[in-house]
Amino acid sequence: MQFLLYLLIYPFIWIISILPFPVLYFLSDCVYFLVYRIFKYRKRVVRGNIALALPHLSEKERTVIEKKFYAHLCDLFLEMIKTLSISKKEIEKRYTFSNMEVYYDLEKREKSIALLCAHYASYEWAVSMNYHIHFKGYGVYKKLANPYFDTLVRQIRSKFKSHLIDSKETIPTMASNFRNKTFSLYGLVSDQSPKLSTTHHWQKFMGIEVPVHTGGEMLAKKYDMNIIFLKTKKLKRGYYEASFEVLSDGNAKDFPNYEITDNFLKLVEQQIYEAPEFYLWTHKRWKHMR
């Protein structure tokens, strides 16, 4: 059944992936009308999240953000599909890095690097960073239930010289590379809500106290990694610019527990306040509060 589903859907994915960008974004506008106006996909969650995180805005201002978010979400979804056929030249034109020298300086320290980022702007196209780095790049992700689509995602990422590792593979991979002194870059999307059973730290995020992921910081301390934050701006439709900010460039163990995580959250907050329409409001980030 899973293979049949894959066979039925894949041709449509491929056709969408080869569309020119102007046609792709016309299609995105059509999808926006269906998703926002007709199906109202997770509208209650989105509206509730924006109201919680941005209470200082009027209802009219929050509605504007809501609509812009759904337009961006549809662009993001189709850009993910476009990744299947996009060329190296095209992705490097559309997703640029403003201060790669900050990252290169960390590579010279001869330590692996933990890259922390959020579900903001185009976190999918950030994988193109692997074209510019010298370390082996790993992306930690949650394995898809359908093995055929999971294989497809892995193939797409390998095109960008990225190696996907399931969350269960993360510690064994880091441990092996640490023992063998194989310096690597690990991309960790760390802004979503963890399971309460695995929660070690609560902190205010957008003014609300919530459980937060601390895995990036703890793994960096355990395997002696430097830590960097990836910030992405959406310049215009289909164009993004990323920049780096160092969170730790010495001994991460010198920081009190959770200080690096808290600093990461503050940086995520900053970019949300700058342009809230590009945050992934469909996730139930505030489902646990105290």
Results as ranks from 00 to 15, higher is better:
S248N: 03
L144I: 03
K221V: 07
K181Q: 04
S162W: 04
R179Y: 13
E169M: 12
I171F: 11
L164N: 00
F183K: 12
K159L: 09
D191A: 06
L152E: 08
L219G: 05
K234V: 09
H213C: 00
E245I: 06
Y239V: 07
N226F: 01
G187K: 02
K204E: 09
G139T: 13
I228G: 01
F244Y: 02
T182F: 05
Y148Q: 10
T214P: 04
L219I: 09
S162L: 11
I165G: 01
R154S: 10
E241N: 09
F244Q: 00
Q155R: 15
K143P: 11
T214Y: 07
R157Q: 01
K142D: 15
Y148S: 09
K221W: 10
A252S: 15
K236L: 10
A220R: 02
Y239Q: 08
G216V: 02
E169F: 07
P194N: 12
K204P: 03
T214W: 04
L230E: 00
G216P: 00
V189R: 01
K221D: 11
S162N: 12
E169N: 13
I228A: 03
H163V: 11
S176N: 12
K234I: 11
G139S: 15
L164Q: 04
P194S: 12
L164S: 03
V189E: 04
L230P: 02
N180F: 02
S162A: 14
S193D: 05
D249W: 02
T170V: 15
S184W: 03
G216Y: 01
K142T: 13
A252K: 06
S176E: 12
K142A: 14
T198Q: 14
Y223G: 10
S176H: 10
H200W: 07
S197P: 05
K195P: 02
I156R: 10
F244R: 02
K195D: 10
F149D: 12
T199P: 01
M174A: 14
I156Y: 10
L230M: 05
P211C: 05
N177L: 07
N146T: 09
D249F: 01
D150P: 01
H201A: 05
V210L: 08
T214I: 09
N177P: 07
S243K: 04
F183T: 08
K161T: 02
I156F: 10
Q192Y: 05
M218N: 05
S248G: 02
K181I: 00
K143L: 13
F244H: 01
T198M: 11
R179W: 10
G216R: 00
N146P: 04
T199K: 05
K236M: 09
F160N: 03
G250T: 11
A242C: 06
H200G: 13
T151M: 12
G216H: 01
I228C: 04
H201R: 05
S197Y: 09
D150I: 06
R157G: 00
T182N: 14
S176R: 15
